[in-house]
Write a protein that binds this DNA or RNA. Sequence first.
DNA 1: TTGCTTATTGGTCGCACACTCAATAGCATC
DNA 2: GATGCTATTGAGTGTGCGACCAATAAGCAA
Lengths: 210, 210
Amino acid sequence: MTSSVQRKRIRKSPDDRRAEIVEAAATVALTEGLECITLRRIAEQLDVRPGLISHYFPAVEDLVAEAFGSAATAELETLLPADPPDGSPLNHLARFFARTTGPAYDDMSRLWLNARHLSRYRPVLRERVLGQESLWRGRLTAVVRAGVDQGQFRTEDAQLAAVLILVVIDGLASHANTGLGNHPPSVTRLAAATAERELGLPDGALAPTS
Amino acid sequence: MTSSVQRKRIRKSPDDRRAEIVEAAATVALTEGLECITLRRIAEQLDVRPGLISHYFPAVEDLVAEAFGSAATAELETLLPADPPDGSPLNHLARFFARTTGPAYDDMSRLWLNARHLSRYRPVLRERVLGQESLWRGRLTAVVRAGVDQGQFRTEDAQLAAVLILVVIDGLASHANTGLGNHPPSVTRLAAATAERELGLPDGALAPTS
DNA sequence: TTGCTTATTGGTCGCACACTCAATAGCATC
DNA sequence: GATGCTATTGAGTGTGCGACCAATAAGCAA
């Protein structure tokens, strides 16, 4: 008959709970960074006990990888949906470029930086990052290829062009990350020009001239 | 008369000790990452007690910033010496490009990634990163400007061109970091072509055609 | 040689972390 | 309403971290 107050327990199906945990972790990853994914932090956010997180993810590293994968997949689906909605490849690419160089992409670009760095120490995360890179590259390559097929783009190697675009975007993001921040639009314009040239597009076709 | 064995103490001048500590921390930063700069780790490497490190750096964060600054400055001095040795701006730039996209730059490129990410949480480090960015940008801009003056390069805005080159290099490094690793030389070539175009150089002037 | 300054130590504190596991209570099923 | 399965808890372990500080010895100056 100890006076200890017992905690109200809410019991959920393993699938639901797992999904909840991953979602919470993905949110924390995007807003605070992957290293803030701790048992305590996630448990607090879900109002459960740390032990429960451990129960579903015996090793935190697995949860970290899962969270990154979840966030990256969701973001990619927004940027370049698998089943292309209406619009030409040029439209899709222009939107992709505009979004990934815009402020709405800040969190995700930070997360990429974060994940790439951390993946040096965490093998499980590393695999996920490689997987996502390949996914993003594939998706973008498909768009480029479609554009070539429709005569909108002209390039020798679609995949190579896609990688170049990703490299340039990552470079911009990497620089922006410190907060030199929003480099003058001129840099973004120059980066766009690089992509435009590679795809045989006229100046300003991908992003508005500043 | 306790039987505790007393440690042999080696007493050095504050300046020497400080320099020693920063150097050790810079090495750790380059090889293991900035988060491995801990009182215990650095103390162990120098064969002193953790308290001593605290004595010189009451806040570890300051040591981290110092270590990054030291490593970055040393690297820049190697890549783009302040007092240019013999060689034309084109030579200097070509060497800079070759080195920063080569394997010898791996550690430093990882460190940049590391520092940019960490600077999100550590204000002191952040300031250092911004300072180094400005330093690198300035140094590279000077080279570009010299090349323009000598008629080797042709570009409207030297600083803008310099930033674009840095962005492309960072993008390559960021990608390479995960270990997709050494992307095919073709990507590097494409990146070089971007810089060449921006500087009004013929194809292959900056880096050998693959 | 003696004395004094101070660089260095050793010990300790409090905190946050991941991980473990027996006990327990929520809930689907009958 | 009773039963059984298991999702969830509570309590605890051990590790590594930054920070603090009184005591101490190294080595310079007198």
